[in-house]
Design a protein around this nucleic acid. Structure first.
Lengths: 222, 222
DNA sequence: AACGCAAAATGAAAATTTTAGTGGCGGACG
DNA sequence: CGTCCGCCACTAAAATTTTCATTTTGCGTT
């Protein structure tokens, strides 16, 4: 099963390719609507299409419509937030989901997972454990030694990412991209602050497992 | 026991498939009347049919009539609200129930349950308890410490959904989809308003259990 | 080793932005 | 014709981001 990603900005194509590849997906990229359609028709194995709305030659809506003439493959649209983003309209045109830009990669991943594993979409409950820490994504709770912690949204996303990828080192830039969104434009210090606060709330656990990799970033010991 | 869902809009097919699967049902989908009839005849195990009225090839009424020639399997019709939805007519043609579009998923679920558990249909009463709160779906009453509350329809649907899925966090968007209807397009603040009203009526109970998950939505503590 | 320098990380707090709660009101619906 | 709904505008609260002073760390040099 492959994912077709169509976006005219190379930066975004690369970002999505890298990220989704890293999550175990097979990615095919297209730089405009025409190319997207060609690649879609050429490859039987495409199980999900991610389309940017704004593209040269054929815009995302047109591509979506064309695909719908021959196929029911799930389609996720990417729309600029400032644009009119009539959810209803997007569904009417045959899209299964739409994500306003800018989006965090976690949000994207959640949607991609929902569309590639429909059997798991309904429950939505994933339980992650890492030593004395336990995260339940359905109730959105993080518990340390059985005691539920009160984390803010950013802290939650942060620890979730780190736990999902324990052992891996994330640079501040990568964290900003993954947690804050790919086009977030702000300082590195922000990450430090949030890691700091997270550490304060995690106490001893953080001292043991959430380590700084000097000169590079942070990681949760594997 | 399987449910056959026939609707020409993929969006709705997916929505119903995902939702009903999540509720533990086995779903078979069809995109038009002809396909619906084929699948119905091919599968002995279909115990409920949900038919959209407007479909290509054979409309819902025709399909309904055809099925009735050979079977008494319960049929629920989906009709657009703007259309003439003559209740009498729909029953004459053999349908057991009809739901005007757009519908809230809770309403649909209630009807589906009523039709798939006929032995329980007489009582009709599902009784849910959560701490000092008790909901009786047959009499449509919510009682707090034995005292019946006067809730509006929206408030009732809201607390019902939350209680049925206690512990789970619902985003405003999800609540709008589940309680208000799949194609409701309106502001987030509306949810806040209704949660606020519900809280006012639930008093101390709400303070203890109905919590806001900042940045995500609301939940009833698990 | 010990030293000193520079880069990097930290912590605290102010400034800013985001998000939630509330009262009220027009309109719809029964 | 009164109840309920949905939305708006405003307030309050909370989270986020930035700044900045201070501390820690890595590393080449002695």
């Amino acid at each position: 099963m492959k994912i077709l990603v169509a976006d005219d900005e190379q930066k975004i194509r690369d970002l999505l390719s890298d990220f989704l590849s890293g999550e175990g997906y097979n990615v095919v990229a297209a730089a405009d609507g025409r190319e997207a359609l060609e690649k879609f028709n050429a490859d039987e194995d495409i199980g999900l299409v991610i389309l940017d709305v704004m593209m040269p030659f054929l815009d995302g809506w047109r591509v979506c419509k064309e695909i719908r003439k021959t196929s029911r493959t799930p389609i996720i649209m990417l729309t600029a937030r400032t644009e009119e983003m009539d959810e209803l309209e997007s569904f009417e045109k045959g899209a299964n989901d739409y994500i306003p830009k800018p989006f965090s990669l976690n949000v994207l991943l959640a949607r991609v997972r929902a569309r590639t594993q429909p059997e798991n979409a309904a429950a939505g409950g994933e339980i992650l454990t890492y030593h004395e820490l336990k995260i339940d994504t359905s109730s959105h709770t993080v518990a340390l030694n059985g005691k539920v912690l009160d984390l803010t949204r950013t802290e939650y996303e942060l620890i979730l990412l780190l736990i999902r990828n324990k052992g891996r080192v994330y640079s501040r830039e990568q964290l900003l991209t993954q947690v804050w969104g790919y086009d977030y434009y702000g300082g590195d210090r922000t990450v430090d602050t949030h890691v700091g606060r997270l550490r304060a709330k995690l106490g001893v656990f953080a001292e043991k497992h959430l380590t700084t990799v000097r000169g590079y970033g942070y990681k949760l010991e594997g």
